[in-house]
Simulated scan of single mutants.
Amino acid sequence: MPLNIIKLSVGTESPESLKEWQTYFQAMHGRIFHTTRMTPKRKAEILDGGSIYWVIKGAVRCRQQVIDLEEYVNEEGTKYCRIVLDEELIATRPYPHRAFQGWRYFPDDKCPPDEKQGGGTDALPDDMADELRDLGLI
């Protein structure tokens, strides 16, 4: 069973703005990766179909499949991990999540489903749908 990662997308306003930034990053580096200080110890489980779930503006809103986890050492000799990602950004049902530092393991049973918004709310702006969901109306 694959294991996922959850991570804040700091400074991102929406999945669309994350996609724009990643398109720019890919043009510069030839691929999409996120550099983090700590390397996951459960690498085999993550590479068995795991994804990184992005928290944007207080909720999980999208995910990307993890292709590889590469160790990287900078010029000063500090070790980092590059989380190499598939370019496809998959929308998820918004799932509230508070801020945290770094990344965390995110088991499948905690992951939101792969759909933008349930209950016929696809036409609603994200902030309005979030507020209606908080009120228990959708």
Score class of each variant (00 low, 15 high):
residue 71 E to N: 12
residue 135 L to F: 08
residue 127 D to K: 00
residue 104 R to M: 13
residue 7 K to F: 09
residue 119 G to S: 06
residue 76 E to N: 13
residue 124 L to A: 12
residue 35 T to S: 02
residue 1 M to E: 10
residue 107 P to D: 14
residue 116 K to G: 06
residue 14 S to W: 10
residue 81 C to I: 15
residue 26 Q to W: 09
residue 79 K to L: 03
residue 56 I to S: 03
residue 14 S to I: 08
residue 4 N to L: 07
residue 8 L to K: 00
residue 38 M to Q: 15
residue 31 R to T: 08
residue 126 D to T: 14
residue 110 K to P: 01
residue 46 I to V: 14
residue 125 P to G: 12
residue 128 M to Q: 08
residue 108 D to A: 09
residue 17 S to C: 13
residue 87 E to W: 05
residue 55 V to R: 00
residue 118 G to L: 05
residue 36 T to S: 02
residue 19 K to M: 14
residue 128 M to K: 12
residue 50 G to T: 15
residue 121 T to K: 02
residue 93 R to C: 01
residue 98 R to L: 15
residue 87 E to D: 05
residue 32 I to S: 09
residue 18 L to I: 13
residue 19 K to C: 11
residue 81 C to L: 08
residue 113 P to Q: 12
residue 41 K to M: 07
residue 47 L to W: 04
residue 66 V to R: 00
residue 70 E to N: 11
residue 62 C to I: 06
residue 8 L to Q: 11
residue 43 K to C: 02
residue 135 L to E: 11
residue 33 F to E: 04
residue 126 D to F: 13
residue 48 D to W: 11
residue 23 T to Q: 11
residue 75 E to H: 10
residue 119 G to R: 10
residue 127 D to Y: 04
residue 45 E to C: 06
residue 67 I to L: 10
residue 117 Q to V: 07
residue 109 D to R: 12
residue 53 Y to C: 06
residue 70 E to M: 12
residue 109 D to C: 08
residue 61 R to A: 09
residue 107 P to H: 14
residue 132 L to V: 15
residue 123 A to D: 03
residue 62 C to H: 04
residue 49 G to K: 07
residue 8 L to P: 03
residue 2 P to H: 11
residue 128 M to R: 07
residue 31 R to W: 04
residue 124 L to D: 08
residue 101 Q to F: 10
residue 85 L to I: 10
residue 116 K to P: 02
residue 111 C to I: 01
residue 59 A to H: 00
residue 35 T to Y: 09
residue 1 M to G: 06
residue 106 F to W: 05
residue 119 G to C: 15
residue 120 G to E: 07
residue 74 N to D: 14
residue 48 D to G: 09
residue 82 R to I: 14
residue 73 V to M: 12
residue 21 W to C: 04
residue 11 G to T: 02
residue 102 G to M: 04
residue 75 E to Y: 15
residue 37 R to W: 09
residue 111 C to W: 04
residue 121 T to F: 13
residue 49 G to I: 05
residue 39 T to E: 11
residue 115 E to A: 15
residue 42 R to L: 09
residue 26 Q to E: 08
residue 136 G to C: 04
residue 66 V to W: 01
residue 5 I to R: 00
residue 66 V to I: 03
residue 104 R to Q: 04
residue 36 T to E: 06
residue 109 D to P: 13
residue 23 T to W: 00
residue 83 I to N: 01
residue 89 L to Y: 00
residue 4 N to Y: 04
residue 75 E to K: 14
residue 3 L to T: 12
residue 69 L to I: 11
residue 100 F to P: 13
residue 14 S to E: 06
residue 80 Y to A: 01
residue 66 V to S: 02
residue 9 S to C: 02
residue 132 L to W: 08
residue 65 Q to M: 00
residue 23 T to S: 12
residue 118 G to S: 06
residue 46 I to R: 05
residue 18 L to N: 10
residue 20 E to M: 11
residue 82 R to W: 10
residue 79 K to R: 05
residue 123 A to Q: 01
residue 131 E to T: 03
residue 12 T to H: 10
residue 86 D to C: 02
residue 53 Y to R: 08
residue 106 F to I: 03
residue 80 Y to L: 05
residue 94 P to M: 07
residue 132 L to S: 06
residue 92 T to Y: 06
residue 44 A to C: 11
residue 30 G to E: 05
residue 55 V to W: 08
residue 14 S to D: 03
residue 10 V to K: 12
residue 17 S to P: 04
residue 93 R to D: 00
residue 122 D to K: 05
